[in-house]
Amino acid sequence: MSEISRADVEHLATLAHISMTEEELTTMAGELAVIVDSVKKVSEAVSEDVPATSHPLPLTNVFREDVVGEVFTEEQSLLNAPDAEDGRFKVPAILDEE
């Protein structure tokens, strides 16, 4: 019946990198089911031949010239870093490589 199952939410939360408790997953599955049920009508509202509009602006070709601008110093770059070492941002171990 529901468009979105608890397992779906779990998968989506993994994709979105948000840890969720069992309770949160269940609650959100219920809420999203209602919302999705309401918004899914859009697919019936349009036909094949309607072009998509990704943007309200009809502008194209907005470019920047290839001229070097200001840069951060190492200190500025790392100013807000939760953790750093050797001028680099430090992060916990990565499980697998892209």
């Binding site: 349009v46 309607v50 998509a52």
Partner: peptide, 8 residues
């Protein structure tokens, strides 16, 4: 579809 609705 939502982007198409946007066109409409």
């Amino acid at each position: 579809s939502a982007q198409k609705v946007r066109t409409l």
